[in-house]
């Protein structure tokens, strides 16, 4: 009796709530750390990025309008979905050669990070907004608003934790995200997409692409509908992103990929990260009769 032939999974990108191949039809080979073929991963093109931005634009207004409480519940649901498949996700991370223990540690850190942000949705406004005591007969208050669509560029290392750390502060406040996964270890992002799909996160709020960073950076840099770029990239890419950002006065928040970033640190999460991806709006109104 011959062994059962297993069904291999075709990795697909999670865009607009659907699982897609690259419109270009291109793929790249993903090998495990031993150099053995694992799967063909979509090699996304600039048009895939464009389509993902369109999907995010569709989802954005609805997501931003959700109540803070509801966003918090949904983010918590995302954590639940990952927690329930910890082993799968750890396996995805182990493709990159880390030990089981290290992989588990990263998955758990990612889940904890998501739970951390789930608790921020209905609190950051109280910290970042303000009622301003102006010296005239006006009521004056500042509230934050999401910027819109945020482009995320994940670094190669920590393919899950870094990605999640970059995405979460953006969506906590109602932004949508188009993210490019780790180039060397895209598979955790593929799995993350599958987990997001069964969470209550509306399709299009987070869009995950796989591919070559160098190829995608110019489009991330210049796409004017992206209102901010958040990521960890090398010096050359930082410059390219900032040059592109200048064309539409895009907000840019970048870490240096060439330096070690301690993604597990508490300093990598919280209010400051949320603040970097919101706009402040101040409203004046007379107090009269």
């Amino acid at each position: 009796m011959s062994a059962r032939l297993t069904i291999t999974k075709t990795p697909k990108c999670y865009v607009g709530g659907a699982f897609i191949r690259s419109e270009s039809g291109r793929v790249f080979e993903l090998k495990d750390h031993k150099g053995e073929f694992f799967a063909n991963v979509p090699l996304c093109s600039r048009k895939d990025l464009r389509n993902a931005v369109e999907a995010a634009a569709k989802a954005g207004p609805g997501w931003a309008k959700r109540t803070a409480f509801n966003r918090g519940q949904i983010l918590y649901r995302v954590a639940e979905m990952i927690e329930s498949r910890v082993e799968d996700m750890a396996g995805a991370l182990m493709l990159g050669g880390v030990t089981k223990a290290a992989a588990m540690k990263e998955v758990v850190a990612a889940v904890e990070r998501i739970v951390h942000y789930a608790g921020w949705t209905d609190k950051y406004e109280a910290m970042l907004g303000s009622v301003n005591p102006v010296a005239s007969a006006h009521f004056n208050f500042t509230v934050t608003e999401p910027m819109g669509i945020i482009g995320v560029l994940a670094p190669d290392e920590r393919p899950l934790l870094a990605l999640v750390s970059l995405i979460l502060p953006a969506i906590t406040s109602g932004n949508c995200v188009v993210a490019l996964a780790s180039e060397t270890q895209p598979y955790p992002a593929i799995l993350l997409g599958e987990m997001l799909a069964v969470s209550d996160l509306p399709g299009g709020v987070v869009n995950l692409l796989t591919g070559k960073r160098a190829e995608m950076v110019p489009t991330f840099a210049t796409h004017e509908h992206l209102r901010a770029i958040s990521g960890a990239v090398n010096a050359e890419q930082r410059k390219a992103l900032r040059l592109g950002a200048a064309e539409s006065v895009k907000r840019v928040r970048l870490w240096k990929a060439e330096e070690a970033v301690d993604w597990e640190s508490d300093a990598m999460e919280g209010l400051e990260e949320i603040r970097a991806l919101v706009e402040c709006k101040t409203t004046w109104h007379p107090v009269g009769g």
């Binding site: 005239s136 007969a137 006006h138 007379p286 107090v287 009269g288 009769g289």
Partner: peptide, 14 residues
């Protein structure tokens, strides 16, 4: 009456 003649903003007029 106000629909007819319009209103006044107190802070603005001051």
């Amino acid at each position: 009456l106000f629909d007819d003649i319009g209103t006044v903003d107190a802070v603005g007029i001051e």
